[in-house]
Amino acid sequence: MTMRTRGEKIFGIFNAILLTAIAMVCIYPFIYILAVSLSDAKSVNMGAVWLLPKGINLNSYSQIVHKEGIWTAYLNSFFYMFMGTAVSMALTTLGAYALSKKRLVGHRFLNLFVVFTMWFNAGMIPMYLNFKNMGMLDNRWAIIFGFAINTYNFVILRTYFANVPQALEEAAKIDGASDFKVLLKIYLPLAVPSLATVALFYAVERWNSYFWPMILLKSDSKIPLQVVLKKMVVDMSSRMDSLNYGRDMTGTSEDGFIYSTMVIAMIPMLILYPFIQRYFVKGVMVGSVKG
């Protein structure tokens, strides 16, 4: 360690302040939303809530419990996340394992067949028509299977499998193990960190997606929370459209309701976040290595 010059010390202090400010900008919206969701409508309307909730009440949360649509949507979201991640992992793992084998006849063509879809896809309308023509509109399984594989995640797993020493597989094969057994007993236990990364990628993607569920699902009994929230947010802005902006909004409890819905929509991700952070950083690195 060398001596730091005065300029460097000043920079160090300035840097610490700047980074603290950046970090605060990143998390402040979360704190604000939580505070508003816990405050009473009057304090929110007066603009008194900035950091801590004022006039604490849980009205907006109890509203959620009583409003049936929200609960259904919440449960739907969990269904799409868990079921979707399970299906995604099964398909991606099978494909990535098989295509990581360079000895496989046709592996070059098959890899190109898959990776090509990263740079070219049919686009929104042909995809929509495809679901429509298969009679998969308003069908839960369209969401589960129609978006099962993310090719980036496939590349991450394939890269991992390709780097496992061949000798392990050969030894097992000599002992008479089948390919399925090799995958289950040797590769999967070794790949747990990579599998966890990819599973988290999928879980986040599934939980957060709104666009295709919005387009494909019509019945209230099937839509996930993000779609309900989207309707509420858009309703809110169109409701404000019709108001002069000098005037205060009526029914601010509606705002608290939206905020608390946003909070419950974030909770699963916030719970996953510590795990995500540990694995994602590694995942990003693997993914950025040439596929």
Binding site: C26, P29, Y32, I33, V44, N45, G47, V204, W207, N208, S209, Y210, Q226, L229, K230, M232, V233, M236, S237, M240, L243, Y245, G246, R247, D248, M249, T252, D255, I258, Y259, M262, A265, M266, M269, L272, Y273, I276
Partner: peptide, 21 residues
């Protein structure tokens, strides 16, 4: 912020920029 859904982020933007409150 990266792990928060686009809908929630859009909701934040909409409400932070709301005309009156």
């Amino acid at each position: 912020p990266y792990f928060i859904s686009t809908v929630v982020v859009a909701g934040m933007v909409t409400s932070f920029l709301a005309p009156s409150t």
